Simulated assay, not measured.
Amino acid sequence: MSEDNPHSTSGSTSKTWFERIKQALTGEPKNKEELVDLISDAEQREVIDPQTREMIEGVIGVNQARVRDIMIPRAQMITVDIEQSVDEFLPVVLESAHSRFPVITEDKDHIEGILLAKDLLAYAFHPEKEFQLKDILRPATMVPESKRVDALLKEFRQQRYHMSIVVDEYGGVSGVVTIEDILELIVGEIEDEHDVEDEGTDDIRPLNKSTYSVKALTPVEDFNAFFEVKFNEEDADTIGGIVLKAIGHMPNTNDEVTINDIHFKITNSDKRKLIQLKVSVPALE
């Protein structure tokens, strides 16, 4: 009976790769860059496919992201007023095709709870039942903008809820975050049969009066028009290209640069491209 040759090429390669994984996960030195390089090496060796590599890198990036980086900003929140009748808020529910809605009283800073669309089914089949929106509300959980995304994902899983209201340092509502927002950070954008073709309307999203979340692929022309600035469209096609040129190398997530009084922070990127930027403009006097 023959034994495996410990000096064979395949055995040596496999052993070396597993030794490197062990070192990256349990030995010294430990850092994200080494782990990402190891994952890229695994892809090149066809141990994993490109999609798996992207997902693993997405998981690694989650612990760097904060809720403010992925939340749906206040201006884009779809809400239901607690005083509305079913006839008044049902068109909003149907048109948005969402499954959860913050329910407000006076304004978006006063949230009474979360409406689950499925909770309306019992009344649809039994119209004789007296309906009070407040009777079917689920509790609304609050999270700060600065909360780490990986910690929020753990809470979502442990407590089995899928939406939280995001509040700023003063207690005002600044947006909403869902478990789908976190999953999209890992696996990329999740589309369903209700999603429409992206026409660029969400390329620039306000976070507050002077800060915006901007897709790196936003055309320079659109960026100039929105912010009333004059970046040279011959320098790059996208605002991400303008940032890359200014920095001079492929930056990492959380790197920052100021160009023409506009501050750019990279909130999402991979080894090949910029994905999302946080843009801060000078506050109006």
Rank of each mutant, 00 (worst) to 15 (best):
S2Q: 11
N5A: 05
P6G: 03
S8I: 04
T9D: 11
S10D: 06
G11N: 10
F18Q: 07
R20P: 00
Q23C: 09
T26E: 15
E28S: 13
R45E: 15
P50F: 00
E54G: 05
E54R: 12
E57G: 04
D69P: 03
I70P: 00
V86K: 07
A97Y: 07
A97E: 06
P102W: 02
V103K: 09
A117K: 10
A117V: 15
L120K: 06
L121F: 07
K134L: 13
I136P: 14
P139E: 11
P139A: 08
K154Q: 04
F156Y: 11
R157T: 13
R157I: 15
Q158G: 05
S164F: 02
Y170G: 00
V173P: 01
S174R: 04
V176K: 04
V177R: 01
E180S: 11
E180P: 09
E189F: 02
D198L: 06
D198V: 00
E199C: 01
G200H: 08
T201G: 03
D202M: 06
L207T: 04
N208A: 01
F226Y: 14
F227T: 01
N232M: 11
A236V: 05
I242D: 01
D255F: 07
N260I: 07
D261F: 10
D261W: 13
L274V: 09
L284P: 11
